[in-house]
């Protein structure tokens, strides 16, 4: 992805989360990765691998601790794309 369009990133993150999350939960911007989607530490690490490849970026694992919602995640990805 050459541009850091928020909407496009959100759609891709939704798609990747849909593959990782087992339960059929509607994924919105305010959805919390751990509390709402039940993402455990292992799944979070796998998700980061998928995100890195989808956007061709480096996404340090230490940044995960600051991310609570899907929106936080998308904004951080946007920042990494623009870095």
């Amino acid at each position: 992805m050459s541009t850091a369009d928020y909407g496009e990133i959100l759609e891709e993150v939704r798609r990747l989360l849909g593959r990782v999350v087992k339960s059929p939960v509607r994924i919105e911007e305010k959805t919390e990765l751990v509390n709402d989607l039940g993402l455990d530490s292992l799944a979070a690490l796998q998700l980061v691998e998928e995100v890195e490849d989808a956007f061709d970026i480096s996404f340090p694992l230490n940044e995960l601790s600051q991310i609570r919602t899907v929106r936080d995640f998308v904004l951080q990805i946007q920042q990494e794309i623009e870095a």
């Binding site: 690490l45 691998e49 890195e52 490849d53 061709d56 970026i57 480096s58 996404f59 340090p60 694992l61 230490n62």
Partner: peptide, 24 residues
């Protein structure tokens, strides 16, 4: 984690995956 460095990981035993991450 204690180092404060940026932590990246590559898929287990995949040199191709490591290279992708080095390139980035």
């Amino acid at each position: 984690r204690m180092s404060g460095a940026d932590i990246l990981r590559f898929r287990h035993n995949s040199a191709a995956d490591l290279e992708k991450r080095l390139r980035r």
